[in-house]
Design a protein around this nucleic acid. Sequence first.
DNA 1: GTCTATACAGGGATAGAC
DNA 2: GTCTATCCCTGTATAGAC
Lengths: 214, 214
Amino acid sequence: MAADGSGAGRPEKRRAIVRAAVTVFGREGFARASMDAIAAEAGVSKRTVYNHFADKESLFLTVALENTVALSEHLKDLAAEYLGDVTDLRQALIDFAVVRVGAIFSAEEHGALGRAIRAEVTKISADVLTAWLAAGPQASHQDLAGYFERIASRGLLAFDDVDTAVEHYTLLTFHPVADRSFWGALPISEEEIRRVAASGVDAFLRSYGGPDLH
Amino acid sequence: MAADGSGAGRPEKRRAIVRAAVTVFGREGFARASMDAIAAEAGVSKRTVYNHFADKESLFLTVALENTVALSEHLKDLAAEYLGDVTDLRQALIDFAVVRVGAIFSAEEHGALGRAIRAEVTKISADVLTAWLAAGPQASHQDLAGYFERIASRGLLAFDDVDTAVEHYTLLTFHPVADRSFWGALPISEEEIRRVAASGVDAFLRSYGGPDLH
DNA sequence: GTCTATACAGGGATAGAC
DNA sequence: GTCTATCCCTGTATAGAC
């Protein structure tokens, strides 16, 4: 039997299990989450869970990877919407920062799963972690880099190294929220998110604003 | 009986327990760590652990708080050494960034405990978390703010809000390392730390460099 | 009187059997 | 889908040792 979550059983059961696992792992973390709770949340028997996934660990890793893939695609759409055709760069960078934080830390348990991954990072194999990074944070980074290059070619940004510029943008606009909210564990007001994004973007543009910005 | 870790029993036993708890909680996280393992690591019986600390949770919180207090004091010394009497601001900010990262993520398990706290943040009471933040990150932030004010008064830095400036310095020089290494879980080369610190400080100074910087 | 060593009760977990 | 074997953990209890 496969038991790797790929081909066995009814797909709608599998989806229910994955959704339930996101919820429970997100709420409890890996160690506290029980397979009983996940089965109950999914409305299936525990046997069905073990039919689709070999064990707790492989369920967790599968769920984490699928979740980060879905999030990356969502972020890609948001980047296209906010950074694809920029007129007011400052406003676009602020707005994108706000919606990005919202996408990662809102109702869906992306933030909680991110926290769970980070909590378990010493127990995760290097391969799996590399795959998770590539599908998630690095994919978003690459996507942003494309937009930054295009914006720079219009003279609105100026940098030697696009990767450093992207990283600094993320550090100044995303990480303050991630840090204060402990990766989405504690609430943070919409107003504070906007304030942080604005001050981060202003600092970013003082560093990386191009000759034709104003 | 007190059993809050304050007055009972021999102090050297208590110290051994706290040291062992740092090691084991740092290595395993809260949920995986067992009181048996902590007792064994400390070289005392489990009963002695329970003689000093009411339960696993209070041991963890005590250890986390004491650890962050010690780290803050160490960082305060480093700040005084590197930022107390600045001649070359860029070099001072880079050097301090490097030693700060080293202090937090080197051999001592500060980073591991920080990760454990972040993993448990949803289960920690607001009071305890507030106390931990005040004794740790916020204390270091305040300390840095004092140095930044003094440096700004010499015209080497310029900012409207010292707290934002300090936060951006930390975001640009500390968080890249914390993020890449997953708060110290994965190794990161000295060379990369220096490179990240330099590019972070350069971006910081493009934003916050004062009129008399050059 | 504090510590060690060990055993044990009670609960809960994974994983698998039926 | 239920039931259970097996294991591990917390926290307590019961011995005796320095």
